[in-house]
Structure formats: structure tokens, C-alpha cells
Amino acid sequence: MKYYLGILIVMIAVMGCGKKSTKPTPEIPKLIMTVDYSNIGVGQSSILTITLENIGDPIFAISLQLTYDHSILSFSDSLDFEAGDFLGSNVIAFVREESSIIHLSITKLQGQSGASGSGIICLLHFNGAVGGISDLNIARDNLRFYDSSGELIDMPNLEIGSAQIQVN
């Protein structure tokens, strides 16, 4: 009996030693775009929420260009913009619409800490103008993240989502 117990202990020890430690794999950072209503009528509104998830390096500022179809959806100016909780509202935000492109820059202020983890960058309010389908996209080339010293943060594995609003 002692003999078998010894074997069992050795086997458990060997199995224990052989077991690799499981290190959590860093989750892939994502930029997610969701709309509260994907089907709206002319004159009705839909809110696009742009969210970041699984951000490692603290982000201090973001600039991006969002494309949509301004013949289908209308977006005017900063009144259609709400800062999210990711960078907070104590920011300088600039949002400008130009021919189906929304130029957006949001920056925290010197002395503040960058943001990491997950959270909402901003909410953008669109109104249905005429019937049709508008895609909402952010091209990787037009998306920049900065750290607190203004250095660009490279995020090559960032998954960028998209959204769509149909106006009936």
C-alpha cells in the first residue's frame, strides 16, 4: 500500500511540475461602434457610440475621421457630440463635419493621466435625412492615439468595428 501511495505522490508531483503556468493572454484591443437604432425614419435620430476595449497603454488623446453618407444622415456640429467616459468630459474636443467625414479630436489636458482599459470615447447623434443605408466607418489610417507626452501610440492589433444606419 505504501508502495502505491508513493507512486501516486510521485505522479502527482511530476504532473504538477509539468503543468505550465497559465499566463493570461492580453486581450485584443477593440474599437467598437454601435448604434441605438439601426433603422430610423426621416427626421428621427440614432446615436452612434464609439467604444474602446482592452486598451493597455494609457491613451491621452484621440483623433479620428469617421465616414458616413451625409446625403442619408445629417450631423451638424459639436451639439451632436457627447464626450464619453473613457477620456472624460474634462477634455478639449473638436468635431467638424465635412462632406461625409466627421473629423474628431479629443485630448485630455497636461497633468492628467491617460486612460486605459475600456470605455466610451464619445456619442454622435445622427438624424435621418432621406431614405437609404449609411455605413459608419473609421479607417485605420485616420485613427491616431497619443500618450501623455504626445507620442503616437502604435496599436497594430486594434480591431476596428463599423456600424450601419438605415433610414426608411
Binding site: D77, L79, S89, N90, V91, I92, A93, F94, L109
Partner: peptide, 8 residues
Amino acid sequence: KNLSGDSE
């Protein structure tokens, strides 16, 4: 009109 945020 395009500027937004609650910062100083």
C-alpha cells in the same frame, strides 16, 4: 461651434 468639452 465645433469645440466641445467641460475643461477649463
